[in-house]
Design a protein around this nucleic acid. Structure first.
Lengths: 212, 212
DNA sequence: ATTGAATTTGACCAATCGGTCAAAAGAACG
DNA sequence: CGTTCTTTTGACCGATTGGTCAAATTCAAT
């Protein structure tokens, strides 16, 4: 009672309860990802997302209070999973193999979740208005920790001397490029999966760069 | 006479004649670059561009027939200058130094014209609807030619064996990353110019990668 | 100063934007 | 079956979108 707005009760706060809620939220987020990743937040429209999801516009707003809420939901789940591979770097492991595994995992992400990569790219291009605080706190801290690990490896002579931060930037740039600039890559390369050749290329390159 | 629309006569077709036309077209393109590079074509609005340029919206449309015309004008001048450095690769030069010079020049472009880089990134992210034909023809051809040069160098043993196309992709990815993801880079790095350290880093990395 | 062209703008337009709401339609359960 | 809660939607809202247009202003050259 009290004040029940038109919004789904279980949808906004707490987890979705019924299976139809789960299904439709999934449908909407999938469609929103498709549209946001291509046109960015401002360039995307609710009508587009609604059409893509096969739902009516008011129905979208029954599950999410606003366009921004959809975007935030996507960014949140993205950030959670996006940087996990970096956290998986094991200081005890073999340095070169650890980094190569990270590169491989990151390239897999670009191949399997290119839209998520583009969603992130769009957000950054627009000045990261919604995730800047996160970048300056959590991400920055995570990078700093990883740099300690890398510096340790180089100090032990198990890794060629490298600027650790820019090494990380390099990995991000090289792997995400194949997702974010996929159109350009395939336009230049023609048909065929670019990721296989890219994987081999990156493996060789990083091996040369980092072998002591 | 005949049919003079409200559009500037010398502005649409041919080069701008009066200095006030030159100045205002410049003002508009500058503002349009600012807005388009941040929000992409769909996310940008004429009111935003008008405000940025300090002109009224109808005045914008006096110099350009449409929003799309502004975007096209920007993309065209961009494409002309963007790939010149690649054309400057000299098959007679020292392979490693030629490539390093290209990397340096590309990084300078990212530092001095980050908005142009982001404009391009936005266009690609949206599926390159306006420049795909160019990518599939001119760019593809240029890359193919460059690959011949690189393959020649490796065949002569003056360059470590590399997949030439993916080497080019790597250069693009690494240099443009500092322009397109500038917000993220500075968020992680804190204040200070990232380009100096990036330049040193890339120099070392590519030297290791490509020294036979 | 006057004229004729170039430039600027306020008012306006149809279409689309994100979002609201009451009412209809569908499920769930006795 | 009827009832209650959930889900869906058509109609609608004010604001903003890209773009038009006639009138007003400024400019350049006599």
């Amino acid at each position: 009672m009290t004040e029940t707005s038109a919004t789904a009760q279980g949808a906004t706060a707490g987890k979705p309860r019924t299976r139809i809620q789960r299904r439709n939220r999934e449908l909407i987020l999938e469609a929103a990802l498709q549209v946001f990743s291509q046109y960015g937040f401002r360039g995307a429209t609710l009508d587009q997302i609604a059409a893509e999801a096969g739902l009516s516009k008011p129905n979208l707003l029954y599950y999410f209070p606003s366009k921004e809420a959809m975007h935030e939901a996507l960014l949140q789940t993205l950030l959670e999973t996006w940087l996990d591979p970096l956290r998986a770097l094991d200081p005890q492991g073999a340095p070169l193999e650890e980094i190569l595994a990270y590169v491989r995992r990151k390239l897999e992400l670009a191949r399997d979740y290119p839209r998520e990569s583009r969603l992130f790219a769009n957000e950054i291009l627009q000045g990261a208005p919604r995730i800047l605080p996160y970048l300056e706190s959590d991400l920055r801290e995570l990078v700093a920790q990883t740099c300690v690990i890398i510096r340790g490896w180089t100090a032990e002579g198990r890794l060629a001397p490298v600027d650790p931060v820019h090494l990380i930037f390099s990995i991000w740039a090289l792997t995400q490029h194949y997702a974010d600039f996929e159109v350009q890559v395939t336009a230049v390369l023609g048909e065929g999966d670019p990721f296989e050749a890219a994987g081999a290329h990156l493996d060789v390159m990083f091996r040369r760069m980092l072998t002591p």
